[in-house]
Design a protein around this nucleic acid. Structure first.
Lengths: 204, 204, 204, 204
DNA sequence: GATGAATGAGTCTTCATTCAT
DNA sequence: AATGAATGAAGACTCATTCAT
């Protein structure tokens, strides 16, 4: 009896989401028609609606999987017992994003901008994204504390403020990469390093 | 046909763009219909098409005026002969954005995300935005040079890399403010300060 | 300025309803597609939606106008100060229906069945129809009272019960005419007469 | 392929028809989707198509069984050697319908309206229904003849005309019951009685 | 015999744009 | 210049039916 297995079902869902992201990143989320996604997925109209109730649900699922994948990519770096030094941390994190973008055919930077924009007029999407960003913020704050303890940066500043600054850095790198061309991880690292380090022996 | 004066014409165009932004920021650029803009502008369908050829041109004009207004807002700070110190600079710049948002009823952060997203699938929009961001990047790099010269930050780093980092900071603040709630300018300033001053307020 | 007059607007609405009824009576209410109505009305899709929000509203408006027209047709007979005798009453009432059907190209009998059926699964439609039928029932009861007073029928029976019987008669004539071919008004009259006059033409 | 027994086959067909009528009476014949019927019948899509070629055939079979059941219900009354008196006849006949409706969960009145409506745009359905109604008409005419012979009603009227009137009565009771709420059999009987009987010894 | 995933033509509806007035 | 009724192509979604298993 052709009742599909859970794995097959999940595979179909992924196939559809993958097609959706290909289309979204080409033409924008809302400018993409269901027909385009259907064609890209090599399915029939009815089949897609068998797996997602409608366009809204599909968009939300697409955003959700984007969040999960990105998180899976970055978590190892964020949760390291002994975090990289600030510059190395920036280099490794941006490297991860770049390499993911090159393995898959999806530019994570481009996708991020679309997703953030969608969230501005889609409250369910905003909830998902805000939750994820809050976690990143907390994790970055924890890293900042370790940097302060280890002397990578000055100990005086409030970790939460500095954590926000670090989050801004990364979010901004994404924007800048999408708008002006990929920033190379080394440049990114040097940029932070240039701000942080080496006040020429201060008073001296 | 009573030809309208240039001033009147410009006023009408602004009236339409203003209506467009109100709608865009509520529902997203592509989810907004011409009819909504037309109603918001208190005009007739025909009238709008007298001033803009179509929706695409209207979107582009809306993006263009957004770029101009933001630039007019920030330029004084960027071009100061003697720039503010890094922390003060961040505070003043983010203050400008917040205050503009409060004077008008448009959240510049929200609008920025929408505009960036649109640019990912609209090459004319991308050109406009990329050009503007490149200018910001250069101007920030110039500011960085002055900081290095003045000893606000260490002199060793490449100004272009540090300029990119600063641009990332600001872009990221916009994203973070739109997604997680407005970041207060003082917090933003403290965040940068906490990174930079790598020794406990040695020189001050 | 091409703002349409109220008369023109009403004319368009009627044009659409008339087209709708042509299609409905050919293929059934639900089997009729909006496209068919649109073509029959010689309009564009958009135009129809300018006058009716959607198919449901159009169906309801079609039912509503059917009720009004039928009522306008029958009211003079129902409200006569001195009603016709039972047989004449039946003859005149059924004549009205037949003649209306022949002037217009719509078979009121067919339409009635469709409308009643629709009401069984459409509560808004049912409200409208039930209200109209209740009025008919009351008016027929009033006529029955006059018949009893005048001696056209025996005075003993409860007017409300007999009113219901009369309503059944007319509703049933509609059904029978639609299903088995139009019953001629004289036959209808003779049928009632044959039941009522329980003694062989005693008085008349 | 294990061929199923004829009994089993018939049971399946009935199961499907029963499910179909449940759905039809809830949502209307055409508004009901095959999927709804399939779910209501606790079968698979393929199974239903094993027993009925398509929706049209299913509708026709549903109408056909409705005709048969109703006929089986009413025939004993219609064919009595010595028919009930007019009032009793009406009471017993409407009682039968009411009681059937209460035993099963299907309102015969509602179903009747739907079936008649369907017939207006479905010639095969119309043939079936017209044939059945013609039989009823003939049988009622025969009853009328007996009434005249027995003196229940005046002997002068043409039995065929009076038979039509009686058919109208019953059809109309169905309509009225569906639209305005079940008419109680006693009221129905009294209504007819009030028309027929007891001219207060007028001329005589 | 039975299943239910898949199909794709067809449905209702929207919306950018035009044009007679 | 300005209006807004009208257009019709395109959109999201449904559903009767089929067929590989």
């Amino acid at each position: 009896m052709p009742k599909i297995s859970d794995d097959q079902r999940q595979a179909r869902r992924d196939q559809i989401l993958s097609a959706a992201w290909k289309c979204f990143s080409r033409r924008g989320i809302h400018a993409t028609s269901m027909e385009e996604i259907i064609r890209e997925a090599n399915l029939s109209a009815g089949a897609v609606y068998l797996y997602y109730k409608g366009k809204d649900e599909l968009i939300l699922a697409a955003i959700s999987i984007y969040i999960q994948e990105l998180r899976a990519l970055l978590l190892p770096l964020l949760l390291r017992e002994e975090p990289f030094s600030p510059a190395a941390f920036v280099r490794e994190l941006t490297k991860s994003i770049v390499s993911h973008t090159q393995r898959n055919d999806l530019d994570l930077n481009v996708v991020a901008l679309m997703v953030w924009s969608e969230a501005q007029s889609n409250s369910r999407a905003k909830e998902l994204l805000a939750a994820a960003q809050l976690k990143y913020r907390d994790e970055l704050t924890a890293v900042v504390r370790k940097w302060q303890k280890r002397g990578d940066i000055a100990p005086g500043g409030k970790p939460t403020s500095i954590g926000r600054a670090m989050l801004s850095f990364f979010l901004g790198f994404i924007v800048q990469s999408a708008m002006l061309g990929q920033i190379d991880p080394d440049t990114a690292a040097k940029g932070i390093e240039g701000l942080i380090s080496n006040r020429p022996l201060s008073g001296g």
